[in-house]
Amino acid sequence: MSTILELKNVSVTLDHHAIVRDISFAIEDGENIAIIGPNGSGKTVLLKAILNLVPYEGEIIWRPGTTAGYVPQKIDADRSVPLNVRNLLVSKAHIIGKGEKEIAEAIRRVGLSKESVATPIGHLSGGQFQRALIAFALLGEPDIVLFDEPTASMDEPGEEQMYALLDRLRAEAGITAVVVSHDLSFVYRHADKVLCLNRSGLCFGVPAGVLTPELLATLFDAPTFYGHTHS
């Protein structure tokens, strides 16, 4: 195993507000890392910093040649735009220099039907849309995939299916994954390591070891937690 990604003292300040402060951790090949924390704790922003989508201080060191896939939490798909999943996959394939074979493979991996692939993105169900986003991230077989709350807009059976899909992808493709989640049961069942985030990092390590009742109380009893809603 070798380190695929390392963060050293990473802080993000947006509009003069400190969103995340002084985060350090490393991810090894094949690991499944969960990032948990209450709403407003900076999880999404940290992922964006890792992908260089927002300015940050500190160091983010990628192993040379590493490719990353990104599954964002929410995209307000415009219903009036005549784009379907296939159009998006074709465009990404073109940008990263891949072809039809890789597109078919990405679609197969997430189990999207032919009809879903040809449906305008604004007309897909929440679950289909999420699978489409994952297929998009998987296209080209990236070394690491960053998932931002992949089950945010799903009911419980949907969540279970999504977790089963993530497990299968890890087993099949051996991908390294970073999954932002607010679901503790996911963390215990699926994550090798967990980063507890509430603007600053409160813990990092094996879930059974670091997630003590005291730590969870500190993590989720912060005032931001009372604003937590499932929309």
Binding site: L51, L53, Y70, P72, I75, A77, L88, V90
Partner: peptide, 20 residues
């Protein structure tokens, strides 16, 4: 520009994550 624009229309963040 078509592929860059299509991805940018869908999600600027996703497009940027592909170094567009």
């Amino acid at each position: 520009l078509r592929h860059q624009m299509i991805l940018g229309i869908f999600s600027p963040d996703l497009a940027r994550s592909l170094k567009i």
